[in-house]
Amino acid sequence: MPDLALQRPGLSRERRDALLGLLLIAPTVLVLGAVIVYPLLSAIALSFQSVYTPTLEGHWVGLANYRELLGAGGFWAALLTTAIWTAGTLTLQILIGVAMALLLHQNILFRSLARSLVLFPYFLSTVVAVLVWRWLFNDLYGIVNHALMAAGVIDAPVNWLGAMPNAMLSIMVVGAWKFFPFVVIAVLARLQTIPEALYEAARIDGAGPISRFFDVTLPQLRDVLTIVILLRTVWDFKEFDLIYLMTGGGPVNGTRTLPLIVYQQAFGLNQMGMAAAYAVSMMLVMLVFMLAYLQRARKAAA
């Protein structure tokens, strides 16, 4: 590289290293700028405008979108719905995920097969999963009603997706089914690194199976569960396709979470600026979790 400026005599070694460093991170900075920073700033700029989606033409309205959003009440209701959905489905995911991980950690028959099969929901396309679940939940010919009636739990078919709170419970269950394998993978990996000697020491110290779970297993899972909960909170919070396809936000607005409003504003009402305002508000809420996650990750790395 005879013509490279870096080779020029007269540059001190420190300056050469600094220039080389800039050169090396430049591609990353450019790519990140193009695919993350620019769209983000555009979205923020959009949220201060009134934009008609089909033409993408509009004008500056300042904080009018935010004023409308915060004043209308729809935002707060949707935020609450989103929080309920996130808390509910996440709790189920964690409980089922940890229980399944503990089960798959045992020496059960066909363990490797079970470990592969448990990942199935996570890899299944949401559209396919939702079609199947809607069929299962169908109030006329769904197997859920059929089974519950056969077992004598209910007398008449239940409207699982068309009434509240059933619809919310149903999407929580489907969300838990779809995403619990993520928890299983993370927890199972951690379980396998807990030294067997800790359990043996606990047995000698007089700890029964329940004590061993709470005094050995759970403390060891704390870090991985914190990370899993933070990540899944963010992902569930912005979950769109599963809810949109299951209930479309209904009945009425019963399961209308914030991402559904964003979609509705942008493509139903053709209000791109308003949609951007909702999206930016959502981002601010999620930022809290992101910061918590980053702090955790930094602490774990230290």
């Binding site: 000697a197 047995r203 000698i204 700890a207 060891q220």
Partner: peptide, 20 residues
């Protein structure tokens, strides 16, 4: 008898201290 009922105590190679 269960380990806890044997009136023994054990020191492990890895010490097996409860880290938390």
């Amino acid at each position: 008898l269960a380990p806890a009922a044997r009136d023994i105590a054990m020191v492990f190679q890895s010490y097996a201290l409860y880290p938390h």
